[in-house]
Design a protein around this nucleic acid. Structure first.
Lengths: 301, 301
DNA sequence: TGTTCATAATTGTCCTGGACAAAAGCTTGA
DNA sequence: TCAAGCTTTTGTCCAGGACAATTATGAACA
């Protein structure tokens, strides 16, 4: 009977909640209530870690920790189980339902085929602008509601990534103007935003260079100079902590030459206030518009 | 004259050094020595952050912080500049040199072409086993020596990733036995190890499913069950903190059914002691051998 | 009823300074 | 040359306090 226990660093890894947060919750709310190992250090049982993951998820729906942690387990569980899913605005929803179902059935080959089929039917531009955007949102929301697991989101991302990369690789090189550097900041690991932008902008003939995810700010600055980028585009997912976005953009803005534009997009910038010297792109359409504007104000000579 | 200052969380993001570590270094060695903002909180000037990144890099070469932090700046700088590069064992080194040069010249299209050419000349198996392995090592070492920047490593990874994914996508499905789940743990963001393994194992007809990088342990367990995986394979890069590997593997082992094998590979497991119930794969060849052994001990019925 | 503004509660992150186990380095003896 | 034991180094954990920024609440007002 030796149940598995996790130290505080492991819990931080598994839940994404910082060590300070875990300790202060324990002090204030009495949860989590870890045991102590032979050295007096916190040792969290697995069920408490699982409850923390649930709480983290519910907080993404707008709940505040003080409320949640005061509730008894049964009430938490009832919040976790989604209300009878009103078949909400099923606009072109048949594919969403198919895709979410395939994910939940773990039928990876069928998922890949469904996505590939949609891409070929719609063409890359429409596929990205409509289908991928909507699917990402649907899957994110399904996770928030507890309908799919993190690993299932990973499976989806992996299939979509393969498809988009293949499509991007098949595109002809354009004029290469403007030169756009795409990446995410160190805590942001979601790559689909980058790949969607890369696909659309490359389709329009821009010169995209991707650094992948999680590039230190200092290196974004170095890369922008080395690549002679005209635009640095960052993607923030809805999971990214909103409070960190503004300071990050300000920091990056300060590292770049004034003639380099900074664009920020993704679901994570919806509640972010406007920044001087930074374009907040509320949608992929806005990015395409931004591209047109850049070209209008930088005529080729 | 308002120089940019970073708070301790930003320094952690940029350098990868934990907050506790930054504070204890300051206490013990007197460096870093941040200013304080109007609230009395640490505010790091950019040059100290840069020095911290240098120190982190030198530590990867075997230096210890106590030694490094005692040195004056000039001596640190002399360590940073590499000794006259003895043209070390240039076994098939011409491609390495070409590739590293192309990276340093930021000629992305040429880099992509050189890699694609090598792949087609050698075939996927030899390319992965020999060229990609060697290139990864060469680039990692070039970074350690300060010859290339982090963003240049990102550029390389992005090109290689595109190439490997394309090659994997073109492979025919095999027998699908055994079913292998590939991923990395949450702090490990290097994906090439996964892609290399996926390429080789799929070539041998195994059924590979990738979760991409940074999957929480709990979800690795859930995915293994959902996918009915026979083997869970993890990749650790040389940048991964060695001390964390063993506890992670033990934790994961405890989460999986006993009939599921756990394999760990990559440069990050070289100094890791053997674990009960975990196969430490010292090389990609070892993984192929492991595959053969699995098949020998699990004859199809 | 709905809106605006000031006040109050909540919450994450930072702080100090102490402690200690594990890892790494060193010394000694065979 | 190696192994075993000793010493130093090093990262991570701890307690408990503080506070700014965000969010909720209620009062006043249109």
């Amino acid at each position: 009977m030796n149940k598995t226990l996790m130290n505080i660093a492991a819990v931080e890894r598994e839940t994404g909640l910082g060590k300070d947060t875990l300790r202060v919750w324990e002090r204030r709310y009495g949860f989590p209530r870890p045991e102590r190992d032979q050295h007096g250090e916190r040792a969290y049982p697995l069920d408490q870690v699982e409850k923390l993951r649930l709480i983290k998820r519910l907080m993404g729906q707008g709940w505040r920790p003080g409320r949640l942690l005061a509730k008894p387990d049964e009430e938490l569980a009832s919040l976790a189980a989604p209300a009878e899913a009103a078949p909400d605005e099923v606009a072109g929803g048949s594919l969403h339902l198919t895709v979410v179902d395939l994910i939940r059935q773990h039928d990876i080959p069928a998922l890949g085929n469904a996505l590939r089929q949609a891409l070929h039917r719609q063409g890359l531009q429409q596929f990205v602008l409509e289908t991928v955007s909507a699917l990402n949102r649907a899957i994110g929301e399904a996770w928030m509601r507890g309908e799919i697991q993190v690993f299932e989101e990973h499976l989806y991302t992996e299939q979509m990534q393969a498809l988009l990369r293949q499509a991007i690789g098949a595109l002809p090189p354009g004029s290469g103007r403007p030169r756009i550097l795409l990446t995410t900041v160190p805590e942001e690991q979601h790559i689909l935003g980058i790949l969607m932008s890369e696909a659309l902008l490359t389709l329009e003939g821009a010169g995209c260079v991707s650094l992948g995810t999680q590039t230190p700010l200092a290196d974004i600055g170095l890369a922008a100079r080395a690549q002679q980028a005209d635009i640095v585009a960052l993607s923030f997912s809805s999971a990214f902590p909103t409070r960190q976005v503004a300071p990050l953009l300000k920091q990056l803005r300060g590292m770049l030459a004034a003639n380099i534009e900074v664009w920020a997009g993704g679901a994570g910038i919806e509640r972010v206030a406007a920044q001087e010297g930074v374009r907040i792109m509320g949608s992929l359409d806005a990015a395409l518009e931004g591209l047109a504007q850049w070209r209008a104000s930088h005529p080729a000579h």
